[in-house]
Amino acid sequence: MYYRGLDDFLARGRAALAEGPVAIVMVEDDAEVDTTLRHHMQSGFRAVLALMPDVVPLAPDLVDTVHRIACDPYAEGALQSAVNRIAAAAPGTWFFYCYNAEFLFYPFCETRTVGEMLAFHAEERRSAMLTYVIDLYAADLDTAPNAVCLDTAQIDRTGYYALARKDPAHHDHPRERQLDFHGGLRWRFEEHVPPARRKIDRISLFRARPGLALRGDHTFNDEEYNTYACPWHHNLTAAVVSFRTAKALRTNPGSRDGIDTFRWHNSVPFEWHSRQLLDLGLMEPGQWF
């Protein structure tokens, strides 16, 4: 299904939002677009929305199954604005958002749907879920100049850390149950990454409600949505494995000439399985077994 823009989708396609969860994918280029959309369809999302420029092709088998919405991904605040408008049209629906060449993994995702996970999460009185954006990168940048290669994808097995998230409204005291997480390529090549973009945490899964708004730093205007756990025990977390930072470092003129490889002594092949992410501590099952 094709829509001329977000206004057209909200006028003609709003019924797709009636039953969640719904995945929103912002397509910035042609890197693994079809793979990204198929991955999230197979994860169990009831609807997949692809906000993408008309010049980017879409595989024939996806034309009738994905809601394609014409969009300029490089307009200021494009993703933030789109997520907020779509979520406002469907209060109560669970949403997930990401970019192309990013893939959601959650505990036991090989045998359980995202809907089953979110049903459990909601039973724990949670309306949002913390996800860690874990960098992927090709093993050989000579054969994959844009750093995207599914077959040779690498991941950092160490180098992740968290810092207290300060609250400016309360004399910079740490916010309760909130942390700023760092690591991956944004940490190893931080000289090429603005400080405001070095965090790897993102509230990618959330249940819409009136007045809720996504902010530019991937947090929400409701501080409880930004917490990693409830007050009484640990909750589920998930991971978004992503080629996006590697692509950007290879595309940006200020960084591409200084990077011959992203591999280092802590690089390991990504196994495309939730067990690896669980073993590395890059997501948590909480009370879900």
Rank of each mutant, 00 (worst) to 15 (best):
Y74R: 15
N84T: 10
W94R: 10
L79V: 00
V83Y: 08
C109D: 15
R85H: 06
S81G: 08
A82V: 04
F95L: 01
S81Q: 07
A90M: 08
G92D: 11
S81C: 14
V83K: 04
E76C: 00
R85F: 00
N84H: 03
E110C: 05
P73M: 00
E76L: 07
C109Q: 12
A89P: 12
Y99P: 00
L79K: 10
F95H: 02
P73V: 02
A89Q: 14
I86L: 08
P107G: 14
G77E: 02
Q80Y: 00
R85G: 08
A82T: 06
A87E: 02
P107R: 08
Y99N: 12
F96Y: 14
F95G: 02
T93D: 13
Y74V: 07
A89K: 10
A87N: 06
L79P: 11
Q80R: 15
F105M: 13
A101T: 03
A82M: 03
P107W: 13
E102H: 11
G77K: 01
A78L: 04
A101Q: 10
T93F: 11
R85S: 12
L104K: 04
E76K: 03
F103S: 10
G92N: 10
E110D: 15
F105A: 10
L104C: 12
F103M: 02
P107K: 12
C109M: 15
A89T: 11
Y99S: 15
Q80A: 02
E110A: 15
L104P: 02
E102M: 12
C98D: 01
Q80M: 04
E102W: 08
A101W: 06
G92V: 09
F103G: 11
W94K: 12
